[in-house]
Amino acid sequence: MAYMEASVRRKQLVAAARSVLAREGVARTSLRAVAAEGGVSLGTLQYVFPSKELLLRAVIEDVVDEIAGVLKESVQVEDGLEHAIRQGLTRFWSQLVAEQSDLQLMQYELTTYALRTPGQEHLARWQYERYAGIVAQWCQEAAGKAGEVCAIPFAQLARVVVASVDGLILQHVCDPSPGRSREDLDAVIEMLIGLAGVRPAGRVRTAGGA
């Protein structure tokens, strides 16, 4: 087998795992199946990922990085938090939801698998902490670069963003309807913008709310 740098090999195996997970589901995905998909021996796979948990964790991290990349590339954060929410979620939906139901189903399966597997519950918690963390960082960067403040903590805003979009995704996966889903997404975006209550950092509200 030709030599391959560890970082390249890791990416190759994570990509193979994502393919198997999307096709077979989490419960039926084994290290042996991923090794076959990646064209490596089981021993090579286990050298990089000694356990299924570590492999699933790497897959989740890869998905989080993909989401972060879409959000980062979708907008100029200097345009402010409202613009970031509106454009970022629209881009996220078009790239990672509308045409990738298998990706979304895989993520839900990763969550339920972890919650139903004794000793793996922390993986589900970590998964959603990573989702919320990347959204919080993205929102805070957009507000900070535009000299804005948010009406609620960025961590709380991020959790509401994740929860709201998560619900829309589940509905879309169960009953795909592009038109309805886009209308609902637009409604959620307006709700989130209202919740954020974005205002210039130098503005101080008086007792009368002015």
Rank of each mutant, 00 (worst) to 15 (best):
residue 155 A to M: 14
residue 195 L to S: 01
residue 156 Q to V: 11
residue 150 C to A: 10
residue 196 A to D: 01
residue 188 V to R: 07
residue 174 C to I: 06
residue 179 G to S: 10
residue 145 K to D: 08
residue 181 S to K: 09
residue 145 K to W: 09
residue 171 Q to T: 07
residue 154 F to N: 05
residue 167 G to T: 11
residue 182 R to K: 15
residue 201 A to N: 03
residue 148 E to L: 12
residue 177 S to I: 04
residue 147 G to W: 07
residue 181 S to M: 12
residue 166 D to T: 12
residue 174 C to K: 05
residue 166 D to G: 13
residue 176 P to W: 04
residue 182 R to T: 13
residue 193 I to S: 00
residue 174 C to E: 11
residue 167 G to C: 06
residue 166 D to P: 01
residue 181 S to G: 13
residue 176 P to I: 05
residue 199 R to Y: 00
residue 174 C to F: 01
residue 158 A to S: 14
residue 200 P to E: 12
residue 156 Q to E: 15
residue 145 K to E: 12
residue 157 L to I: 14
residue 190 E to D: 13
residue 190 E to C: 01
residue 152 I to S: 03
residue 190 E to Q: 11
residue 148 E to H: 12
residue 148 E to Y: 06
residue 183 E to D: 11
residue 193 I to R: 09
residue 192 L to E: 09
residue 201 A to S: 12
residue 182 R to L: 15
residue 143 A to V: 01
residue 169 I to N: 02
residue 180 R to F: 06
residue 149 V to N: 04
residue 152 I to H: 00
residue 181 S to N: 09
residue 174 C to N: 04
residue 148 E to N: 07
residue 177 S to N: 11
residue 184 D to Q: 15
residue 157 L to P: 02
residue 143 A to R: 01
residue 189 I to T: 07
residue 169 I to M: 13
residue 184 D to G: 02
residue 196 A to K: 04
residue 199 R to S: 08
residue 147 G to N: 12
residue 172 H to I: 08
residue 168 L to W: 05
residue 178 P to R: 08
residue 150 C to M: 14
residue 154 F to K: 03
residue 176 P to F: 03
residue 152 I to R: 02
residue 150 C to G: 02
residue 193 I to A: 05
residue 159 R to T: 13
residue 172 H to V: 06
residue 165 V to D: 06
residue 173 V to G: 00
residue 148 E to Q: 11
residue 197 G to H: 09
residue 177 S to T: 11
residue 158 A to C: 15
residue 175 D to T: 08
residue 197 G to C: 05
residue 201 A to T: 08
residue 201 A to F: 07
residue 165 V to T: 07
residue 193 I to W: 05
residue 167 G to V: 12
residue 169 I to A: 03
